[in-house]
């Protein structure tokens, strides 16, 4: 469970303060599939960063499973991310000098798993995603869709409870987009929590709940009854 308590985030630059996000209270239950929508500059990425323990709010607390993230040390937050969270990026953020297989092994290396276990788990996941022929290719040698699948393998390899995605389909063609959304649906069915920032209505409508941001304010929070897929527990 993720909880925000009286959060505000201000950026100061050029002598003036800008409040990029504020919110009195917000709770995201385990297993929820949340879409965050809103115009550019409305604070979506700011919110996602704070949920992920990557950006300290100016005031307020973020609780993940009742642990207040920003009362922890920076290293402890890194550990929490490594154990509980998986991130999906618009431009995949693959490490350019590592092969597909090596990229997927990186999160496992932070968990101090042995080289054999790392290799085995990463290979399995990549094979599942249809990349068995591309294990030793560098990101630059992969198509965009393949890159996003490698990135998804890296996100999922640690079996994260929470998945945080920022415009995950922004750079993808319709086919690749569908692959990503399918994987999200599967994650949702497996009971993981998903928070997906998106511009795209067709992405947002797969979620079970939509948060709308305008100028850093949460203006709308609606349950989407028409969602095609519901978690098993909620059915």
């Amino acid at each position: 469970m993720i909880q925000l308590e009286t959060i505000a985030k201000q950026y100061s630059g050029r002598g003036q303060k800008l409040t990029a996000f504020r919110c009195e209270a917000l709770t995201i239950e385990d297993g929820e599939y949340v879409a965050i929508v809103g115009p550019s500059g409305s604070g979506k990425t700011t919110l996602l960063s704070m949920l992920g323990g990557m950006l300290s709010p100016s005031t307020g607390r973020v609780l993940v499973d009742d642990v207040s993230l920003y009362d922890q040390s920076v290293a402890a937050r890194s550990a929490i991310r490594g154990q509980k969270m998986g991130f999906v990026f618009q431009s995949f953020n693959l490490i350019p000098y590592l092969s597909a297989l090596q990229n997927v092994q990186v999160p496992l290396s932070f968990a101090k798993l042995s080289a054999e276990v790392q290799q085995q788990r990463a290979t399995e996941l990549l094979v599942d995603l249809g990349l068995s022929e591309r294990l030793h290719h560098r990101p630059a040698e992969l198509s965009v869709g393949q890159q996003q699948r490698v990135a998804l393998a890296r996100t999922l390899v640690n079996d994260p409870q929470i998945i945080l995605a920022d415009e995950p389909t922004g750079n993808l063609d319709p086919t690749s987009k569908e692959v990503v959304l399918k994987i999200f649906d599967e994650c949702h069915q497996q009971g993981r929590t998903l928070v997906v920032v998106t511009h795209d209505p067709s992405v947002a409508e797969r979620a079970t709940r939509r948060l709308t941001l305008v100028d850093g304010n949460l203006v709308d929070s609606d349950e989407i009854e028409t969602s095609t897929l519901r978690p098993a527990s909620a059915a």
Partner: peptide
């Protein structure tokens, strides 16, 4: 920078 941020997102500590 983005690679550093990504590594941290994946669980790297500042020390790392």
């Amino acid at each position: 920078r983005r690679e550093i941020g990504t590594l941290m997102a994946l669980g790297a500590t500042p020390r790392y």
